[in-house]
Nucleic acid binder design. Structure first.
Lengths: 248, 248
DNA sequence: CGAGATGTTGATGGGCCTCAATAGTCGTGG
DNA sequence: CCACGACTATTGAGGCCCATCAACATCTCG
């Protein structure tokens, strides 16, 4: 269960209307009056240290979370000790939809680095849906985006070879950063090789070899976790996919 | 676009309160009064012939659908002509969540046999969410279930070997039929080998070999599309997974 | 500095894809 | 009723992609 999580009450920093993520986070699409109603219900901030869990499989769904800073990895575990990374989540992303089916989380969420999240308790959320039509719309959009991301991941894992999986991932990450105002040709991988390989359904050694292969083709250059895309068209050509979806 | 679809107005047969699927479909969890409000908005029935499409990638989201009879396959296509089956949907299942992100369908849906669906226009849906708290709850549950199914599929494709994928699939299908009151040890595969192999991320030949392998181990018997599970524990042992999720 | 975590590179084998041929099934029409 | 072709499914042979094992290099941090 969740223990040792640092909760703290609402402070001046916890104002959606002044948050620099408001265009991609929860409040996206809410009117000014709706927003003021909304932000008064986001009554807590959660702080996690690196490797600390936000929730585990089987935990009761208590809140929906938005990442304010840091990053979160979600994953499933099997009875045999295997695991599958489901996604890497960054500022502006929402977490907790995995618990909607039966109010119980079906996956695990852990902080990849020190992370701050905004917490919207489920009871507040349901009340807000009653009075804020815009929030219902936003929620359905967010849920739809999550489903689309899963679809893309299934396509990647089911049909692509390892090189194409990596190329596709890099392109999505590039788009993802671009949307948030960062460079789309140079960025850092927020996760270790081990996690990325697992996410992409391959062995870490294979991932390393594919990075080397892309470097040799002069499509990218990578040092440790810093990626530079040298040939965007080449990368697109390897991935056979338009860059239309969010990163998963 | 969708053409040649047979729409017909509401008739006596289109009553949710008398539908034998009401426990697993949309109305699940609605009160009696909510249900009567709800069913007056499900104003059409859609009939599809085998191989006819319900919607295609890029179509505007107009309605959410519930399958009344028949079965629907959803899939993604790539620019290279590849495709990935996302799911096989049967009576009581809902369709259309893939369009919530931007009111545009991101996948294709086609009838695997002659199929009848109940149609809930999006405008009605949004109005109903305004007045029916139970509907919002049900929708979030359904969406959560869909997300959980995707999670399981990602795990299957990302981590399992072909034999384990098939065993897991058969177990989920077994649970699925059991929930609907059918036999969990003998049932028919509603899809051809080609589609099932694609869904499970393997070549049709590999799928055929895995069926043969399971037969040789006397875990199942299969003739054409009729499956009989001979050794449920053996199947569970091969799949390394509890049977807790709906079939995808 | 030393230990553990992280990442790279090489050698080897196996799981599964591909290609090909055969068999079985279904729908259609003579 | 059966013949025919199209579709679906099975089975075999060969080879490649990638997992595994192992060794080494690099980085992080107490």
């Amino acid at each position: 269960m969740v223990t040792n999580i640092s909760h703290q009450g609402k402070g001046s920093s916890n104002s959606c209307s002044h948050c620099n993520l408001k265009k991609i986070c929860f409040p996206h699409g809410l009117s000014a009056s709706e927003l003021s109603t909304f932000e008064s219900s986001v009554d807590q901030t959660v702080k996690l240290q690196k490797k600390q869990k936000l929730y585990s499989r089987g935990d009761t769904l208590k809140s929906v979370y938005a990442i304010k800073a840091g990053s979160i990895k979600t994953y499933l575990s099997t009875s045999k000790g295997q695991s599958q990374v489901l996604g890497f989540h960054m500022p502006g992303d929402l977490l907790g939809f995995d618990g909607f089916a039966d109010d119980t989380h079906s996956s695990d969420a852990v902080a990849m680095e020190d992370t701050i999240l905004c917490e919207l308790p489920l009871a507040n959320f349901e009340n807000l849906c009653e009075v804020l039509p815009g929030l219902r719309k936003v929620m359905m959009q967010q849920v739809g985006s999550e489903i689309n991301r899963h679809h893309s991941l299934v396509l990647t894992l089911g049909q692509m070879q390892t090189e194409e999986r990596l190329a596709t991932f890099l392109l999505r990450l590039s788009c993802y950063y671009q949307k948030r105002g960062f460079s789309c040709v140079q960025f850092n991988l927020p996760m270790p090789r081990h996690d990325l390989a697992n996410f992409l359904g391959m062995a870490p050694e294979t991932l390393s070899r594919m990075f080397a292969k892309l470097e040799k083709q002069q499509v990218i250059s990578i040092q440790r976790r810093e990626v530079t895309i040298l040939d965007m068209d080449g990368l697109l050509n390897l991935s056979h996919e338009m860059c239309t979806h969010d990163v998963a």
